[in-house]
Design a protein around this nucleic acid. Structure first.
Lengths: 350, 350
DNA sequence: GTTTAGCACTCAAGGAAGTGGAGTGCTAAA
DNA sequence: TTTAGCACTCCACTTCCTTGAGTGCTAAAC
C-alpha cells in the first residue's frame, strides 16, 4: 500500500493533535482540521490503511487513533516542520547563559536546569572527555615535614590540586627533585603506563621518596579517571509526574530511578551527530521503552564534547524540543569557543 | 484526663502496628496484641479518650485509629524503645564506609546513598562550613606568558587550584613577588577585607601586575564562598513513590520538588543537637507538613559539621531510622577524626 | 468505678448493572 | 473514489447494592 500525500497529512494532523491533547484522535476531528474538504468517512478509510501499515494504533476498538513509534518516526523524519526558537525564547536562553565563566560542572548542571525548565521535561547534561587524556605537568609545593600539595595540570589545561600527607618525613629539599622526576617520566602517558612505571621505580627509591611519589601519582590517575568518565547531571525529574502518561506507577518509577540513580545509562548521541531523537522502543534502555529522548551534543573544546538531553513521553513536542535544544547547543558551543580562544602551549616547569 | 500507663501502652501498640501495616488499627487487634487481658470494648473506651486527647485520629467514623502527630511525638519521646543496629547492619555500614579516603563531596554523596538504601527512604547529606573561613596560603605557578596557576590553601587545609589567564603578558620573574604580596596581605582575612584591600592596591600597581592579582583573589574568594555555603546531596527520591501515602499526587510532587530542586530548604538540625526528629506539621517547610524528617549531625573536623537526614512518611519507623542514622553519624565522626589526626601547622612559603 | 457483652449504626470499598457517547467498520449509493 | 447512513463496540461514568470492619452506646456484671 502506498503512503499518499493525503495519508501523510492525516498522520501529521493525528500526531500533532495527539501531542497537544494527549487523547486519541477521531476521524471527525481530522476531517475538520483538514479544512472539511473530505468527509470523516473518507478519513476513516485512510485511518484504517494507516493503522494496517503500522503508523497508527488504536487503544481499543472504539477509540480514536494514536501514532505508533513508527508513526512518530515518520513524523520526525519527514512531516515535522523545523521550528525556530522565538526571539523571546532565544533572548531568555542567551540571558541565562550570559553569566560569568564557571567551572565546567557548574555550567553543565545549570544548562540542564535551564533546558528542563524551558521544555518542561526532565533534562540531563554531561561532558564526555576524550579517553586518552594525560597529565601535562606536575607541581609539588611544600607544606610541612609530613605534607605537601600536589598540583596536576592535564593536557586539556585543567588544573587540580590536593593536600597529601605522608607517614615518613620528607627529606629536606627533595620535593623539587620529585617534581622533576614526575615531569620527566610521568607526563603524556596513560594511567596504565604510569602504574607500570611506578612499579618499576619501587625498588630504586627510598621509602620516604617513593611514598609521596606514589601518592602524587595516585592523585593524578584519579584526576584523569574522573575527567575521562562522563558525569551526568539531571534535573526536573518531577516534571515527569505531571505528564498524564506517567500517572501509572511502574513506568514513572523506573524512569525516575533511571534519572536519579542510574543516570550514566541515559543515551549518549552517536559520534558526529549533533542531534538525535530516540522514540520509545528505539531506546535500548528498558525504562525508556515508553518514553522518548531528544539529545544534542556540542563542542566544548579541548577535545571534549558536551551533551544535553531531554526525556519525555513519546507524545512530546519533538519540533519544539528539538528547536530549543539545538539553539541551546549552538549557544554553548559559541560560549565555550570564546572561553578557549587561547590554547595554552606545552611548557614544562618543575 | 489522665494519660494512664495503659493508655500509653495502647498508643504504643497503635503506633507500632500502624508503622508496620499502614492501615488504621482497630480495637480488636489491640486487645489481642495486649495479651487478651482486657476486652475490645474496654480498648474502645480508652481509644475514645486518646482520640479526645488528641493522640489519635480517625480517618472516618467506622475506621480504626491512626496516631496523630502529637501521638507520634509522644511515642518518639517516651514510648519508643531505643534500638541498636544489629551486628549485621553495623557490619554493612562499616564495610561501606571503609573505602579509601575521598573528597568531602564524594563522601557526602555516598553517605547519602548508603543511608537511603539502608532505610529505604530518600536521604540527604550536606556539610556546613564555618562561615569565617580564610585563606592560609597562596601559590602561583608560571605556565606561559599569559597564564599561570593559582593554588589556594584554606585555613581548614583544603587545597583548590585553577588556571588563570591574563590579557597582558606577565613581567618576567614577577610571579613570586605577587605570591609574596598575597601571602603577606591576603591571608587570614575575610572576603570583604580582601576586596577592600584589593581596591586600595588598584592605584599602586601596574595593570599587568594588578590584573593577575585580582584574578587570583577573585578565585580565592570564590573558593571561600563555595565552601562556606552548604551543598546538599539527595538520593533515593524514588523510594518515596513506593510509599502508600505518596500515591496521591500533590504531596509526592511537592516533596520530590523539594528533594531535587530546593534541597537547601531541607531541615538542618539545631546547633548542638546530634539528632533531631521532625514530625509532620512540626516541619516549617510546607511540603514536609505531611512527612517526617530524621536528621543527624556529626563532626567533620576543621570546624565543620556534616549532616545526614532521611525524609519519609510520618508513619516511618522512627526507632529503626534513628538507630541507623546515629550509628552512621558516629561512624562518620570516627572516620573524619582519623583523617584529621594531623592538623597541619601554620606555615607560609612563597 | 471499671469492665464487658451485645447491638445498632456508619462508612469505605468493591462489584454488578445500566447508560451515554465517541468512534469505528461496513455497505450501498453517488 | 467518495460519502451518507447505520449498526456495533467499548470505555467511562454513574447508580445501586452488598459486605465487613469498626465504632459508640447501653445495660448488666464484676
Amino acid at each position: 500500500m502506498e503512503l499518499t500525500a493525503r495519508k501523510k497529512q492525516i498522520l501529521k494532523v493525528v500526531t500533532e493533535r495527539y501531542i497537544d491533547a494527549a487523547e486519541p484522535v477521531g476521524s471527525k476531528y481530522i476531517a475538520q482540521a483538514m479544512g472539511g474538504s473530505v468527509s470523516s468517512a473518507t478519513i476513516r478509510n485512510e485511518l484504517a490503511d494507516l493503522t494496517e501499515m503500522g503508523y497508527l494504533e488504536q487503544p481499543h476498538t472504539s477509540a480514536g487513533r494514536v501514532p505508533s513509534p513508527k508513526g512518530y518516526r515518520l513524523y520526525v523524519n519527514e512531516l515535522m516542520e523545523q521550528r525556530q526558537v522565538s526571539p523571546d525564547e532565544a533572548a531568555d536562553i542567551d540571558a541565562a547563559l550570559g553569566g560569568k565563566r564557571k567551572e565546567l560542572d557548574a555550567v553543565l548542571a545549570q544548562a540542564g536546569q535551564m533546558v528542563s525548565s524551558i521544555v518542561s521535561y526532565p533534562a540531563y547534561a554531561a561532558a564526555a572527555g576524550k579517553s586518552g587524556l594525560t597529565v601535562r605537568r606536575y607541581d609539588l609545593l611544600p607544606v610541612d615535614a609530613l605534607s605537601f600539595i600536589a598540583v596536576v595540570m592535564t593536557a586539556d589545561s585543567r588544573v587540580k590540586s590536593q593536600l597529601l600527607r605522608t607517614d615518613l618525613p620528607l627529606p629536606d629539599g627533595q620535593l623539587p627533585n620529585l617534581a622533576n622526576l614526575l615531569n620527566t617520566h610521568f607526563t603524556g602517558i596513560s594511567t596504565e603506563e604510569m602504574g607500570a612505571k611506578l612499579m618499576s621505580l619501587a625498588s630504586q627509591l627510598k621509602a620516604e621518596l617513593f611514598m609521596p611519589l606514589s601518592q602524587a601519582i595516585e592523585f593524578a590517575t584519579g584526576v584523569l579517571d574522573r575527567s575521562a568518565q562522563h558525569q551526568f547531571f539531571t534535573t526536573g525529574q518531577t516534571r515527569l509526574l505531571s505528564q498524564p502518561e506517567f500517572q501509572d506507577f511502574g513506568k514513572a518509577n523506573d524512569l525516575m530511578a533511571l534519572l536519579t540513580d542510574r543516570k550514566e545509562n541515559l543515551p549518549v548521541p552517536d559520534e558526529n551527530t549533533s542531534m538525535q531523537i530516540l522514540i520509545g522502543p528505539e531506546n535500548v534502555n528498558e525504562a525508556l521503552k515508553d518514553a522518548s529522548v531528544v539529545v544534542a551534543s556540542y563542542d566544548i573544546g579541548d577535545n571534549m564534547r558536551g551533551l544535553i538531553g531531554v526525556v519525555g513521553p513519546t507524545r512530546m513536542d519533538y519540533a519544539a524540543v528539538a528547536a530549543r535544544l539545538s539553539y541551546f547547543a549552538e549557544s554553548l558551543t559559541r560560549m565555550f569557543g570564546k572561553n578557549n580562544e587561547l590554547p595554552p602551549k606545552e611548557d614544562h616547569i618543575s
